[in-house]
Design a protein around this nucleic acid. Structure first.
Length: 648
RNA sequence: GCUGCUGUAGCUCAGAGGUAGAGCACUCCCUUGGUAAGGGAGAGGUCCGGAGUUCGAAUCUCCGCAGCAGCACCA
């Protein structure tokens, strides 16, 4: 048999007969490596150690030290071990699929009775037993017919369906964890004992559709997390707790920002505190948009279905629209109206008033548009997904030649705003023409090139999503990263060749002829509601001074200081600071605690000493020490700090 | 929308086939206290809604509604 040469990561070359396994090579290198080895890479392909290597190749052994591979293996084997545990506990359960996901894994089962939270503990225990058995993981390559027959014989209909759905006629890889069998791409560990028994945890049970399709049967999914060591697992569980503490629904209640109630699911009741934040953000956005050449408008909430028919929304999104019908008693003609789910058709109506010239373009029409969409009940989630929301919407009517410049201006504006709002990092996704689309290829060519060129003036670091554009035009999506590393898609910039056509928008060009403008749909925050949810979680409720509902509390230590407290508050208010007095009959400790929990950025404590010196004792949120400063000085510094980022 | 779970005082939650509990918050009284809870007293509930079973339902059953987790959806 011919020899092959394996090149190790350090450049060393080793010669073996063709068909040598990774395990054999590891054993050849050292006994300890053989034991520690998880898997190997052959020319960069991640593989089982048991798989024969047939030709010269770059070769590397992976152990628990190689993060990417080790985590993938641990999580994948965990999924299989969980499935085995479940089938050992409940033999009638049918297995389906169980992939690795971020931080862990899941496995979907078909079982009539759902798993209970208590079952998870039982399954975990069983999994540890399996791990402790240190049973070998073995694999064989079977042809499709044999595999299908095997699963028919073993009454595993989902596996049969999976195989039948795999295109082509390639052979399949069959795995055994001990006696338990599964169809899998692999790779896997050498034996079950290589999964660290104390580094995984089953987290939750939930329904999930077979093959992700809501027409299919609902299966029972068990989610788990798994790590290389105990401290990573602990850190992860700790992070979950942190995220829970930041939950905007919880903070919304405790900081008295907003509430929801049964009579209006998915619609926000903004309380004074929350509305103050909302307005600070809105005022800021209004100034930024005005400075960027946008004209603000306001359009109707309730609009006759005729307009939605013309725009095409009635046909496509009818079931997601709130509609109203006027009582016949009160109207000559019964009309069906819809609450607007978006602003664009109305914006075109404003554009269409009066003849437009190429000299009017680009025309940037902005609206803090209040929209309503009948979202599926199960998708509602605090402020993040609501049925009534306010978009920071705008439409730029321009010529095809202006797309590039408008894109660049938009990205610039968006970057400035994200930075102002405390988000340094964001990703850009560029989605190009889908299979089914409107508009000529020439126009698409032009628009895609313009969008991409504009992105490139800002960064080379963007992702292209081929075929993911809207049917009416290519688009850019902007995803920001929050303080605990989560990503949120907020901004969007979409070219639209269709709506101007459908709603008959036009302008007179230099040539004196009528032309169609292109319409750019764009948003930076997305919706104020959702963005405020993100801001709340990003800051864990501790808003920067300019957004904080109450910026300063002035608290008396003794009641003889009350007059001075009121005076300080009046002066702060006059200087534009949202300050309130706390002259209740309570101890200063109590007041400090309460306002700290309310996350007020600054507390000024006033005792007789401050009254005498005309000073204030400043305590910043989260800090223990205080500093006594003259009143005038304190006011000047608060005024500076409370200024919105664009006014500094 | 689908699957599962949950719904008790303003909030967080305990309880349970015999008619309702705690802590915090609230009101009043005492207390004027120097940077994260001073003391005392009091008030507060259609136990999500409806129907059923039962001598009796907040508790058990069914049907709704809403919330939570996940899936699906997101112009």
């Amino acid at each position: 048999m011919a020899d092959i040469t394996l090149t190790l990561p350090d450049g060393a070359k080793r010669s073996y007969p063709a068909g040598v396994t990774g395990a054999r090579v590891a054993a050849d290198i050292s006994k300890s490596l053989s034991k520690a080895a998880f898997s190997c890479s052959v020319n960069g392909e991640h593989r089982d150690l048991s798989r024969p290597i047939e030709a010269d190749a770059g070769f590397a052994i992976h152990t628990i030290k190689d993060d990417a591979q080790a985590l993938e293996l641990i999580r994948h084997d965990c999924a299989h071990i969980m499935a085995r545990a479940v089938q050992e506990l409940w033999p009638d359960v049918k297995v389906t699929i169980g992939p690795v996901i971020e931080n862990g894994f899941y496995y979907d089962f078909d079982r009539d009775e759902p798993f209970s939270p208590e079952d998870l503990g039982v399954v975990e225990k069983k999994m540890r037993e399996i791990i402790n058995k240190r049973e070998p993981v073995t694999t064989e390559v079977w042809n499709r017919d044999r595999a299908v027959q095997f699963y028919r014989d073993n009454d595993e209909p989902y596996k049969v369906e999976l195989i039948e759905a795999i295109a082509g006629n390639e052979d399949l890889r069959m795995y055994w964890h001990g006696h338990w069998q599964d169809l899998c791409r692999g790779p896997h560990l050498q034996h079950t004992g290589q999964v660290p028994g104390d580094c995984f945890k089953l987290m939750s049970v939930a329904g999930a559709y077979w093959r992700g399709n809501s027409d299919n049967k609902m299966l029972q999914r068990i989610y788990g997390v798994a790590f290389k060591n105990k401290s990573d697992l602990k850190a992860y569980l700790h992070m979950l707790e942190e995220a829970e503490k930041r939950d905007h629904r919880k903070l919304g209640k405790s900081l008295e920002l907003f509430h929801f109630q049964e009579e209006a699911p998915g619609m926000v009741f903004w309380h004074p505190n929350g509305w103050s934040v909302f307005r600070s953000l809105e005022d800021y956005m209004r100034r930024r948009l005005t400075a960027a050449g946008y004209k603000e408008i306001k359009t109707p909430q309730v609009v006759d279905r005729k307009l939605w028919e013309a725009s095409g929304h009635w046909e496509k999104y009818r079931e997601h629209m709130f509609t109203t019908e006027i009582d016949e008693e009160h109207a000559n003609e019964k009309r069906t109206n819809a609450l607007k789910p978006m602003n664009c058709p109305c914006h075109v109506q404003i554009y269409n008033q009066g003849l437009k010239s190429y000299r009017d373009l680009p025309l940037r029409l902005a609206e803090f548009g209040s929209c309503h969409r009948y979202e599926p009940s199960g998708s509602l989630h605090g402020l993040m997904r609501v049925r009534g929301f306010t978009q920071d919407d705008a439409h730029i009517f321009c010529t095809e030649d202006q797309i590039r410049n408008e894109t660049a201006l938009f990205i610039d504006l968006l970057s400035t705003i994200y930075r102002d709002l405390g988000f340094e990092k964001f990703d850009i996704k560029f989605s190009t023409r889908p299979e089914v689309r409107a508009g000529s290829d020439e126009v698409w060519d032009k628009a895609e090139a313009a969008l991409e060129a504009a992105v490139k003036t800002v960064t080379e670091d963007y992702e292209v999503d081929p075929g993911e554009g809207a049917f009416y035009g290519p688009k850019l999506d902007f995803k920001l990263t929050d303080a605990i590393g989560r990503e949120w898609q907020c901004g969007t910039f979409q070219a639209d060749f269709v709506l101007p056509e459908r709603l008959d928008a036009e302008y007179v060009g230099e040539d004196g002829q009528k032309h169609r403008p292109v319409m750019m749909h764009r948003a930076i925050l997305g919706s104020f509601e959702r963005f405020l949810g993100i801001l709340i979680e990003n800051h864990a409720g501790r808003f920067p001074m300019w957004l904080a509902p109450t910026q300063v509390v002035v608290a008396s230590i003794v009641s003889d200081a009350d007059d001075y407290v009121n005076e300080v508050v009046a002066v702060l208010n006059a200087a534009g600071i949202r300050a309130v007095a706390d002259i209740r009959n309570e101890k200063i400790n109590y007041k400090v605690r309460e306002h700290s929990l309310a996350k007020v950025p600054a507390i000024l404590a006033i005792g007789m000493k401050e009254v005498g010196e005309r000073t204030v004792s400043v305590r910043r949120l989260g800090e223990k020490q205080t500093s006594v400063v003259p009143l005038e000085e304190a006011i000047a510094s608060f005024v500076a700090e409370a200024a919105p980022p664009d006014l500094r």
